[in-house]
């Protein structure tokens, strides 16, 4: 059986097309986002407990953190 490479084993290289500089007055490095923004653009790698559904778990996260919205990536059946 021919094996297929898993997507997480693929190595990529960066090719430069042109040179450019970025203006530090706008935007911000992802790991240095200030308080409300780091929640707004944040993602949690959660270890789901057995029992409650993925949907319930993400609703709990929403309530704990007091954020407006939270969604999970890929259902993990109960």
């Amino acid at each position: 059986m021919p094996s297929i490479a898993a997507p997480w084993t693929v190595k990529r290289e960066l090719i430069t097309k042109s040179e450019a500089k970025t203006d530090l007055n706008y935007g911000c490095k992802p790991e240095e986002r200030p308080y409300p923004d780091m929640l707004r653009f944040g993602i949690i790698n959660l270890d789901k407990p057995p029992g409650p559904s993925s949907h319930e778990v993400s609703a709990w996260v929403r309530r704990i953190l007091g954020v407006k919205q939270a969604g999970h990536g890929g259902t993990l059946e109960t």
Binding site: L39, R40, F41, G42, I43, I44, N45, L46, D47, K48, P49, P50, S54, V57, S58, V61, R62, L65, V67, K68, Q69, A70, G71, H72, G73, G74, L76, E77, T78
Partner: peptide, 16 residues
């Protein structure tokens, strides 16, 4: 079942 369940907050839900 248990394990990795990424939970995205607010505007990050778009990356889901």
């Amino acid at each position: 079942m248990t394990g990795v369940l990424p939970v995205a907050l607010e505007d990050a839900t778009k990356v889901v």
